[in-house]
Computed example of a mutant assay.
Amino acid sequence: MERFFRQFDEVSFCEWQDAKCLRGVLIQKTTTAFLAFDVAGEIVGAVLGGMLGSRGTINHLAVSPLYRSQGVGQRLVEAASCDMKRVGVLRMFLFVDDANLAGKRFWAAQGFCEPHGERTFERDL
């Protein structure tokens, strides 16, 4: 999964998010993760997210270029959404780079919208 996400410039995968970090995230009860495979068993899409009380977040979503616009991303988002809804998540959020116009269009088509009057603050620990 780490290698898959690192293939895409539009996925903000930090240098400290290595395989060890990813394993630690994947074993948490609050993590949701799904993979999409082609007929040869190669990963063509992946989604990784987490749950924070009644909110859920999609941290990373990527689909191989050959499989884009075929519903793979939409099905991954639906799977993550169903998983979160099943445990009581009421709202999902995610981050999209300002320059990622295709990403903005994709997320808008999935029913996500930009909040008005909010700014996200973050820091590495």
Rank of each mutant, 00 (worst) to 15 (best):
E2G: 01
R3P: 03
R3T: 12
F8D: 03
F8W: 05
F8N: 02
F8E: 04
D9K: 10
V11C: 03
C14Q: 14
E15Q: 12
Q17H: 11
D18W: 06
K20I: 06
L22N: 04
L22I: 15
R23A: 13
R23G: 05
V25M: 14
V25T: 12
I27T: 14
T30P: 03
F34W: 13
L35W: 03
F37T: 06
G41Y: 07
E42P: 00
I43D: 00
I43V: 15
V44Q: 08
L48M: 10
G50V: 08
M51K: 14
G53V: 07
G53S: 09
G53L: 10
R55T: 10
G56S: 07
N59A: 13
H60K: 09
H60V: 01
H60P: 00
H60W: 14
L61P: 00
A62Q: 03
V63H: 03
V63G: 00
S64P: 02
S64G: 05
P65F: 01
Y67L: 02
S69V: 04
S69D: 09
G71K: 11
Q74C: 06
R75V: 06
L76F: 07
V77Y: 08
V77F: 09
A79S: 15
A80Y: 06
C82V: 12
C82L: 15
C82T: 14
D83N: 10
D83P: 01
D83Q: 15
M84E: 05
M84Y: 03
V87M: 09
G88R: 08
M92K: 07
M92V: 10
F95N: 11
V96E: 09
D98L: 11
R105T: 06
G111A: 08
E114A: 14
G117D: 05
G117I: 06
G117V: 06
G117E: 05
E118R: 14
E118Q: 13
T120P: 00
T120M: 14
F121E: 05
E122R: 13
E122L: 10
R123K: 12
D124A: 09
